[in-house]
Design a protein around this nucleic acid. Structure first.
Length: 320
RNA sequence: CGCGGGGUAGAGCAGUUCGGUAGCUCGUCGGGCUCAUAACCCGGAGGUCGAGGGUUCAAGUCCCUCCCCCGCAA
């Protein structure tokens, strides 16, 4: 079976997936169909936007399928495409066994972590939140569980200092795409290693929510900094403050000379910026953003919003 | 037509309710004080108030249209 003759169906949704799809196409693989999430209203004004993977597919004239639930409405379409192999990358839907049974060569998933650690839908965010130094990508045979299938190939990647989850995701996508090509090549020649996951070493992390980004000032300054980097670009690290709900985009860890209650505002002036006591160490807020405003240096923000008196970042917390 | 905030000097903001000399905190430039300074004092430059049109003796402010930025919700 040559590359040209292998019929591949791709399933993926956001940029991470679109990069994999793009690389697959540039390598000359025959992608006969793309499954992606339905177009949904996005942004203000409720304008509908198409997933990036759909955009790439349309540019190459590939048929696009957008079932709400592929396991309810997608089986016949998938069968009709007669795929030899399915490839998934951040599709956002769980595949049922009858879907997995369609392609004779199976379904390969490109997961953005070193499995069995960091199973789940947002691994690039969680490795940063957890302060890991290294992560990577894994290609695996998809089975009915969530990221539980047999591992094919892996490649590791060092996490850069001050790297955000968004930046890391892009690097992992490019690395994963290359690994995917390698994996497909080896499947074709029957030389692909295949190994069960060690369940004793597995870890699972849930999908991010708005709540994930709320800063708990009892944590250490380092942990909070990791959170800030790990929840970008979405949902962003938010906290209450004397000025209302604000988003913190970047911050530095500072040693603390004196202990105050976590969340206490130690300094808020236009010379040093905003410095907050945490559970361990202080956090110097660099870039921040108030509702309706643009991201700006905390020193700039304080120029127009002078701070008076005692205060804590635990004020005005949203109670939902 | 999902809800909402915003665009005023290089930066961040006030002023708009109720039209009447363009303000504040910084920065910047010059001078002073100081062993010295991110401190303090004095002085200066820098603005078609997002764009266009309308009302008016007079518009940052009121009316209409448009452009751009952002938060929420999805």
């Amino acid at each position: 079976m040559s590359v040209e003759h292998m019929r591949i169906v791709f399933m993926g949704t956001p940029e991470y997936a679109a990069i994999c799809l793009q690389v697959l196409l540039e390598a000359g693989h025959q992608v006969v169909g793309v499954f992606t999430q339905p177009d949904r209203p996005k942004g203000r004004g409720g304008k509908v936007e198409m997933p990036l993977s759909k955009l790439v597919a349309l540019e190459h004239g590939i048929p696009v399928f957008q079932p709400r639930r592929i396991r309810d409405e997608g089986l016949e379409d998938l069968k009709a495409l007669k795929p030899d192999l399915c490839v998934t990358a951040a599709y956002g839907q769980i595949l049922s066994q009858d879907i997995l049974d369609v392609p004779p060569l199976g379904t390969v998933n490109v997961h953005a972590s070193l499995l069995p650690e960091y199973r789940g839908s947002s691994p690039a965010n969680w490795v940063i939140i957890k302060g890991e130094k290294t992560t990577g990508v894994t290609t695996m045979m998809t089975d009915a569980g969530i990221d539980t299938g047999d591992i094919l190939l892996q490649k590791s990647l060092d996490i850069l200092k001050n790297e955000t989850a968004g930046e890391l995701t892009l690097r992992l996508a490019r690395l994963g795409a290359a690994l995917l090509l390698d994996t497909i090549e080896r499947i074709k020649t029957g030389t692909c290693p295949r190994q069960k996951q060690d369940e004793n070493k597995m870890s699972y992390y849930p999908m991010l929510t708005k709540q994930t980004g709320f800063i708990n000032w009892d944590y250490s300054a380092k942990e909070i900094q990791n959170l800030i980097l790990g929840v970008q670009p979405w949902p962003g690290a938010n906290t209450g403050s004397p000025w209302g709900m604000i988003k913190i985009i970047s911050a530095d860890v500072m040693p603390s000379d004196k202990q105050a209650l976590p969340g206490t505002i130690l300094t808020a002036d236009t010379k040093q910026g905003l410095i907050v006591q945490t559970g361990e160490g202080n956090l110097l807020v660099k870039l921040m953003q108030a509702p309706g405003g643009k991201a700006m240096d905390s020193k700039d923000y304080l120029r127009g919003h002078p701070y008076k008196g005692e205060g804590s970042m635990k004020m005005d917390e949203v109670n939902t």
